[in-house]
């Protein structure tokens, strides 16, 4: 038959294996380049030299999870620091009677589980995927090696942990002083995007868990905000039509 290879079978297998292996190596190289690019873009490792980034890259491993999957369990030994590469992760606690309180929504480029990894305890909260997610993770022991070798990372860690404290203080303020409609307004302002880029999509149950109230209260508050003319509901979209009104209701000045 025309065009049919005259190579002995054993040689053909060799060629196929070589092609597969070089393709695989190319994929691995592309993955590593993408991973180093990601590491470079996150606050944890900002200011690191290329050799520093390469050495961090050796310790990073990837994990994927689907919507609803738990990626960290509260109470288990804190052994890994996690970075979200793609998708959105919620960090949450469950009360003894089963009520969920979301502590934080983690978007691409952000990290979670930092505090227990550094304090040496157990995971303070659970973390779950709110859609398909890709995570990069680093073991606690490897992170300590990185920090010793690259003190710049220690400075970055201080900054990140300070931001974490600020966030928690604002959550305490929210739970203590704001009425539910105000809390919903504040949350909408915080999570509103311009329709581009990756933003978390939230169910009413998730919104309720984030601001420490019941799902029913969220539904009622959303109706109130719509009546006030601050937002408009367009099926599965909550459209902020009057951010100033929303800010006034939320009690925030800027």
């Amino acid at each position: 038959m025309a065009g049919r290879s005259t190579l002995p079978n054993i040689h053909r297998v060799d060629i196929i294996l070589t092609v597969i292996s070089s393709g695989y190596q190319e994929c691995v190289r592309t993955d590593m380049v993408a991973q180093i690019e990601f590491i470079k873009s996150i606050p944890y490792f900002s200011g690191l030299s290329q050799s520093g980034l390469d050495s961090v890259g050796k310790y990073i491993f990837e994990k994927k999870a689907g919507r609803g999957e738990i990626v960290l369990f509260e109470g288990e030994p804190a052994e890994t620091l996690c970075f979200v590469v793609a998708g959105v992760v919620k960090v949450f606690k469950i009360s003894p009677d089963g009520k969920e309180q979301i502590l934080q929504i983690i978007r691409p480029g952000e990290s979670f589980n930092d505090v227990p990894v550094f304090s040496g305890g157990v995971n303070l909260a659970s973390a779950g995927a709110m859609g398909a997610v890709v995570l990069n993770m680093i073991k606690k022991s490897d992170l300590e090696v990185v920090i010793r070798e690259h003190p710049q990372v220690a400075l970055n860690v201080i900054q990140i942990l300070s931001q974490r404290v600020q966030h928690l203080v604002s959550l305490v303020e929210d739970l203590s002083f704001r009425h539910v409609t105000g809390r919903v307004a504040r949350m909408l302002l915080e999570y509103a995007g311009d329709g581009t880029g990756e933003r978390p999509r939230l169910t009413q149950q998730e919104m309720a868990a984030m601001i420490g109230t019941a799902r029913e209260m969220v539904g009622r508050s959303i109706k109130t905000l719509e009546e006030e003319g601050a937002i408009r509901i367009d099926r599965h979209r909550i459209i902020v039509t009057n951010p100033d009104a929303l800010r006034r209701i939320a009690g925030v000045t800027s």
Binding site: A192, D194, R215, R237, N242
Partner: peptide
């Protein structure tokens, strides 16, 4: 379907979710 979210509300196992997108209106 007007996204009433009733299905999400009644599901006893949390198998249904009706997530909202939150966006700021353009050309305000």
């Amino acid at each position: 379907c007007h996204w009433c979210t009733l299905c999400e509300l009644v599901c006893p196992t949390g198998a249904i979710s009706c997530p909202f997108e939150i966006i700021i209106e353009k050309n305000q």
